[in-house]
Write a protein that binds this DNA or RNA. Structure first.
Lengths: 196, 196
DNA sequence: GTCTATAATAGGATAGAC
DNA sequence: GTCTATCCTATTATAGAC
């Protein structure tokens, strides 16, 4: 079978996901209706159900789209010279986040994860990858200069990584809730709070 | 008019909110239907609409119920002797949180805040109170022993408070997403990560 | 104030033509 | 593969009896 057809099919699928993401940004994750996706995509019910067995499967694909891509920012930061401090790592990660429109939908996906186990699995997987990269960098940073950390660098990193990672939900939640949240100040504060 | 009637009326209202909170914990914020609240409360549609003009107003009351109460933990910690370190403050706050069932619904409310401005206002108000207490304590801690902080204690606290506060969403989100999230380890990590 | 019954609508999903 | 039309269920909110 011709390769073009497969590619076109995949492209149409992505198109539908794109439209659904826009719906989530406008109406919230649970506020998305098939009718809204139809309108936003310019397609029809038949087209959508030809690519997704039901609404839930579409929304899981949306969750994946929304959460993914954050890994790239960290991987890029990783490639720089020398180990980065916890604060510097977080600046790289969050500064990447805040310029992506889809990031506004991330808290939506986290909330949904508590009730849809497929969404939860997607979130856990991507969260795990980010945490893994972060942990590696923290070990490198703790090892680079002795005395930075009490005890073993790996043990320290295992313990501290979840707390360091908390800066990400902290940023997104405060940005969503507080009318005049100062994003730039938050980024400046990261190296201060986590400098050691 | 008799005072008892007023009190009874208020009590019935709280009863309905209680039932709605249980619905949120079971079905998610947007998954709550009037039918589910009717079932959970053992009341009827008429009873509910006699206390709330519509579903949205009920859900705003639910948001308030879910978010409030966190301030008490911090205020209690505040009363202890001597200024607490950032890590110790967070342990008090989060350890209080994790033993309350309703805390599982907090990420739901944060997600909803992006789309319902009344909910957002509730979240902003309560977040603001917690942040205010935290800031006061951080200033006291920074002032207590010189050299802990570069520059002015108040300026430092203003900058750092939002990042310290991030540990709360960080905890709740990771607990919701990660299948084997180690709550106790997170609490142990707080003083390590924020000790200075 | 609260109940039962119901109106009015919205939303998910399918059928069949093309 | 996609479109139009439609079925069916779920849901919000109201009306009127008690």
């Amino acid at each position: 079978m011709p390769k073009v057809t497969e590619a076109h099919r995949a492209a149409r699928r992505e198109e539908i996901i794109d439209a659904a993401v826009r719906c989530v940004l406008r109406d919230g994750y649970r506020g998305v209706s098939i009718a809204s996706v139809i309108q936003e995509s310019g397609l029809s019910a038949g087209a959508i159900y030809g690519h997704f067995v039901n609404k839930q499967e579409l929304l899981v694909a949306v969750a994946e789209r929304v959460l993914d891509g954050r890994v790239a920012d960290l991987a890029a930061a990783q490639r720089r010279n020398g180990p980065l401090s916890p604060g510097e790592l977080l600046v790289a990660l969050i500064d990447g986040l805040r310029h992506e429109d889809v990031s506004a939908a991330i808290p939506q996906v986290w909330a949904e994860a508590a009730f849809d186990d497929d969404v939860r699995a997607v979130a856990e997987r991507i969260f795990g990858r980010v945490r893994g990269i972060l942990r590696t960098e923290l070990v490198a940073w703790a090892t680079a200069s002795p005395g930075r950390v009490d005890g073993d660098a790996e043990e320290w990193a295992d313990l501290v990584t979840p707390v360091v990672l908390a800066a990400v939900p902290g940023f997104l939640v405060q940005r969503a809730i507080l009318r005049n949240f100062d994003e730039a100040a938050y980024l400046r504060a990261l190296p201060v709070a986590y400098r050691r």
